[in-house]
Design a protein around this nucleic acid. Structure first.
Lengths: 97, 97
DNA sequence: TGTATTTTTGTCTAAAATTGTCAAGTCAAA
DNA sequence: TTTGACTTGACAATTTTAGACAAAAATACA
């Protein structure tokens, strides 16, 4: 999700991985892995990428978080139930405010 | 979520933390932290707890996973959108099967 | 009250997980 | 076949976490 998105953004901007990683001051190979979903970017890096690509930061962060959540729930077959529990507990929390 | 649940189960069984941690072969203090939500249990420990308390293993694992997901999405205010993204990507995946 | 027991907290270390680096690899285009 | 972009795997560095221990706080209860 996040991975495909940043690749798409990069290609749209006609930038090379080398250029992106230079700007973000990270190793070429590391950026490559992030773009392929082998590695998870740090929050800070996500923000920098959004800036660099003139993309919606919120949107990109959502994809990034979605990846992390997916990693947790994908191991189970009733993933949706887990998501529902979380959704409800968020509602609870907001009520409490 | 998970924390309150295991506390409730333990109290219902009229067991002391000391007794539970002895059976699970873990430090007293560590179990205390898990029961208070300061620490996250390992999957294996969740399973043992379910057995010890005669509780539904699946159900307990769901709560445990829900906690982990909650930790990730709670940092953002549009958490539900993130959950929706994940839910959809799970649907996608199941289609692909 | 005072004493015993249970629970909680803080801190430290070892282990595990993650991140980043480097060198060598593939592949496509020129 | 050389060049540049991308990819991969193995390793080192760093960060995070689990668990151990001691001591404090809370609770029970004679």
């Amino acid at each position: 999700m996040f991975a495909e998105k940043i690749r798409q953004l990069r290609v749209d901007k006609q930038l090379l991985q080398r250029q992106v990683s230079a700007i973000l001051e990270m190793d070429n190979a590391l950026y490559c892995k992030i773009e392929r979903g082998d590695r998870i970017a740090k929050r800070e890096q996500v923000i920098k990428l959004a800036e660099l690509f003139d993309a919606d930061q919120e949107e990109l962060l959502k994809l990034w978080l979605a990846d992390k959540v997916y990693e947790i729930v994908s191991e189970v077959d009733n993933a949706n139930e887990v998501l529902n529990i979380v959704a409800e507990s968020i509602v609870e929390y907001q009520k409490a405010k």
